[in-house]
């Protein structure tokens, strides 16, 4: 049974939308006592999931810290190959997108579907821009110059013998972060489609918006730490 058998008669009487995904038609699963409990449970689950994501990135941060401790010159030399203007621009883009997605949650809470859609679209544009800048202005020129991780390293003008290791950490860290940007964008597209087609989110039903937004903020949080660690060291 994928949908509700019969729409709520009250809704039919008022002539409101009858699609089961319309936010006023949404109920809660049978094993919860009420919708609030379900919302809290979903949000708690999301926070636990976010903590696993943080620990996943902790591995990268730990490798970064250890090698920066062991090879500070390599880290300084490697960082000089990165342009802080691209990193800074991407930071601003992610912060803006975090703000729009937070505004989107607010719009859903207030039942303003148009504002929700608007905010999500801006967020997705930001996500696209971020990945574009990352790929087009950073990864591709660097890789074609041979500034690549590990044995792929073929840049002849290295200042420090440990630079390949720096590039390994750089590509793995930013690469996994970019992957999370894409996953987050995928979630937001899912939310956007449902918001456009079914008006699925409103004051009593915005769990999915909230949780996707939390995921997006996490992507932002990780970047807040990656940016100075990669771009702003000497």
């Amino acid at each position: 049974m994928a949908t509700i058998d019969a729409p709520n008669p009250d809704i039919q009487a008022t002539g409101a939308q009858t699609h089961p995904l319309y936010w006023k038609n949404r109920g809660f699963a049978h094993h919860f006592r009420n919708a609030d409990e379900q919302f809290d449970a979903c949000k708690l689950g999301m926070w636990l999931f976010l903590s696993t994501e943080i620990l996943l990135f902790a591995g990268i941060f730990c490798a970064y810290a250890i090698f920066r401790m062991l090879y500070p010159e390599a880290w300084a030399a490697g960082s000089h190959h990165l342009d802080w203007r691209f990193g800074g621009l991407n930071t601003v883009i992610l912060l803006l997108s975090s703000w729009t997605v937070a505004s989107g949650v607010r719009a859903a809470q207030l039942g303003n579907n148009a504002a929700l859609i608007r905010n999500l679209v801006i967020t997705l544009i930001c996500a696209g821009l971020f990945v574009f800048i990352k790929l087009y202005f950073e990864y591709i020129p660097k890789l074609s110059a041979g500034k690549a991780p590990g044995t792929f390293f073929s840049y002849p003008y290295a200042h420090d013998p440990h630079e390949p290791l720096w590039w390994s950490i750089y590509y793995i860290g930013t690469g996994i972060h970019a992957l999370h940007v894409l996953i987050g964008a995928g979630l937001l597209i899912w939310v956007l489609v449902r918001a456009i087609r079914y008006e699925a989110y409103g004051p009593t039903e915005y769990t999915m918006v909230e949780n996707s937004a939390l995921y997006w903020h996490l992507v932002d949080l990780i970047w807040i730490f990656l940016f100075p660690l990669l771009y702003l060291i000497h």
Partner: peptide, 8 residues
């Protein structure tokens, strides 16, 4: 796969 060198 890539021999990135973190453990090498």
């Amino acid at each position: 796969l890539f021999k990135v060198g973190i453990f090498d």
